[in-house]
Amino acid sequence: MPFNLSLSEREAAGLKRSLPVIERVEGRRLWADGKGYLNFAGNDYLGLSQAAELRAAADAAAREFGVGAVASPLVVGHQAIHRTLENELADWLGLEAVLLFSSGFSANQAVIKALLGKEHWLWQDRLNHASLQEAGALSPARMQRFAHNNMAVLAAKLKPESGLIVSEGVFSMDGDQGDWHGLTQLAEQSGNWLMIDDAHGLGVLGNQGRGTLSEQGVAAEKVQITMGTFGKALGVSGAFIGGSRALIEYLHNHARSYVYSTHLPPPQAAAILAAVRLVQKAGDKREQLRERVRQFREGVASLPFELLPSATAIQPLIVGDERRTLALAAHLREHGCWVGAIRPPTVPPGSARLRITLSAAHTREDVQRLIEILHRSL
């Protein structure tokens, strides 16, 4: 074997990953190995992945357009349903234009690699998603990371009119929000562009679910590049980059993962469009989610684990030791709750955790059951 996988070493350290086979998912529950579980590991924050409206939209689009886009967007893959989705996304979020991608990973890679050259700088929050960190490492730009949400550290690193500042709306492992008032102020003062990855804020936060910027009262036009995904609160999959028409036209020509990839299947685009329309009217679901978050945080406050200060659907319980984290996740699973055990390198060493995610689909009884099992695990 020409490379060293070190799987035995990873297993010995409690870091080896395995791929569970999920037999089916229905709302807040999933089934594996013939057993049902309450699902506290997914990102279906509003419970839309099983919505009848999304199923019906996908079925109708499959009959009208077929099940595949058959080519990349610039060949013959861009269809009427894609254009309608782009236009409604832009109107909803107050953007001039948007571009659709197959995933948030490919969208982040595309925009950073297309926009930045060796003459540019890239400043990233240290806790940014792996897709952003890898895109920066692969781009010719000079990348610097700054301490999480530390505007003083970022200010000391910035160079005037030299590149791009990137941070997240809601951080996927900690559940806290980026400091978007501070970030926009520094970007304006330094003359640099700003990009938000709002994968975990879109649909959940802000007026009509417009995301983190809306939640914090920051105008969309203050951030030159917006990335959002459809696989979290919108319940489908895929992603988009939004911004000015000039930016989107540039990416049409230079974003390689857009130019050279088959476009989103029409049924997927139709389901996303249905989700966009539902999310704007889902204020009751967002309130239900906030209530489940309050209930959970109050219920686990006395546990001997660090509960990070998150007001979002992502509720991390820091266990620290990798093996103990795995054992606790296994205990929860034995009692019918499926929870993710997150370990390095996804999170920093010493911060292994249970990444508990809540949904508007969860009932008060569901969350109470999780709380009671966590208390009984001690």
Rank of each mutant, 00 (worst) to 15 (best):
S6C: 06
S8E: 13
E9N: 09
A13H: 03
G14S: 01
S18Q: 10
E23S: 14
R24I: 12
R24Q: 13
V25L: 00
E26A: 09
R28A: 13
Y37K: 00
F40V: 10
F40G: 05
L46K: 02
L46F: 00
G47L: 02
L48M: 02
S49H: 04
Q50S: 13
Q50E: 13
A51M: 02
A51F: 04
L54R: 05
A62V: 14
F65R: 02
G66N: 12
A71F: 08
P73T: 10
P73K: 02
Q79Y: 11
A80M: 12
A80F: 11
R83H: 14
L89R: 02
A90K: 15
L95Y: 07
F101M: 07
F101T: 01
S102A: 13
A110Y: 04
I112D: 08
L116N: 06
W123S: 02
Q124D: 10
Q124V: 10
D125Y: 03
R126T: 11
R126E: 15
H129E: 15
A130E: 14
S131C: 13
Q133C: 03
E134L: 07
P140A: 04
A141Q: 03
L154E: 10
A155R: 11
P160E: 15
S162M: 11
G163A: 11
M173E: 11
M173P: 06
G175A: 03
D179S: 08
W180I: 03
H181T: 14
L183N: 01
E188C: 11
I196E: 04
G201Q: 07
L202W: 09
G203K: 05
G206V: 12
G206L: 02
N207A: 11
G211H: 01
E215P: 06
Q216I: 12
Q216R: 15
G217N: 11
V218S: 04
A219Y: 06
A220W: 01
V223M: 08
Q224C: 10
F230W: 08
F230Q: 00
L234C: 07
G235Y: 03
G238R: 00
G238P: 07
E249W: 08
Y250R: 09
H252G: 14
H252T: 14
R256A: 15
V259K: 01
T262N: 03
L264W: 02
P265A: 13
P266A: 11
P266D: 12
P266L: 05
P267Q: 06
A269M: 07
A270Q: 13
A271Q: 06
L273W: 07
A275G: 12
A275T: 12
K281M: 05
A282T: 03
A282N: 07
L289E: 06
R294G: 00
G299N: 10
S302F: 00
L307T: 03
L308C: 05
A313N: 10
Q315M: 06
I318Q: 10
G320Q: 08
E322A: 15
R324P: 02
A330H: 15
H331P: 02
R333N: 13
G336Q: 03
P345K: 05
T346G: 04
I356Q: 00
A360K: 05
A360G: 00
T363F: 08
T363P: 06
E365P: 11
E365Y: 08
D366S: 10
D366W: 02
R369Q: 12
L370T: 01
I373V: 14
L374K: 00
R376H: 09
R376Q: 14
